[in-house]
């Protein structure tokens, strides 16, 4: 089982899949994430960051818009994390907030480049794919299924890939 744990360390979005705690998953507990998700979807649409045109502008260095959005978000995020760490702020559940350091892997280079290719083609990272479907550009259902196939294929061959 050690191999699984090692590779899970490389997943920056999941903290502890190998020893996932059995946490409360009541409808009420999950509702707050639905509300947060709706809020995030609205911002993605209203700031036009899900627009294929805006992504083209960004990669062609012809507009500051996307750099402004991402740059501001990072500044706000860095300050927030520093405050949380400095004042040892706890979560609403009363737990100390977990912010693990993650290791370097070659996957960040190879996978990063491959995602970049896909980002320029689809004009969408994973969040915007969901938002596009909600907007009503239903052909993005195919993009989502294709992204799921890509995710699954990664799972299938990951032991053969350099990490």
């Amino acid at each position: 089982m050690k191999a699984i744990k090692d590779i899970d360390v490389l997943d920056f979005e999941t903290q502890n899949l190998a020893d996932s705690p059995t946490e409360q998953r009541t409808a009420g507990g999950l509702l707050k994430y639905l509300i947060l998700g709706i809020g995030f979807g609205i911002v993605l649409v209203k700031a036009e960051v899900i627009s294929w045109f805006r992504i083209q502008e960004m990669f062609r260095l012809e507009s500051f818009h996307m750099y402004g959005v991402i740059g501001t978000a990072v500044v706000v995020g860095v300050i927030s994390v520093q405050i949380i760490k400095r004042f040892k702020i706890k979560s609403l559940g009363g737990e100390p907030i977990r912010l693990d350091d993650k290791p370097f892997s070659k996957g960040q280079i190879f996978g990063g480049l491959l995602f970049g290719f896909g980002w320029a083609l689809t004009g969408a990272c994973p969040g915007p794919i969901y938002a596009q479907i909600g907007i009503g550009v239903t052909v993005f259902i195919v993009t989502l299924l294709s992204a799921l196939a890509g995710t699954w294929f990664y799972g299938l061959i990951r032991n053969k890939l350099p990490h």
């Binding site: 190879f110 491959l114 995602f115 970049g116 896909g118 052909v139 299924l145 992204a147 890509g150 990664y154």
Partner: peptide, 18 residues
């Protein structure tokens, strides 16, 4: 639509995030 989506799914997991 299709190939781009595949790269988004494969690349983000390989990179460990998006």
């Amino acid at each position: 639509i299709v190939f781009g989506g595949f790269l988004v799914g494969f690349g983000t997991r390989y990179a460990g995030g998006c």
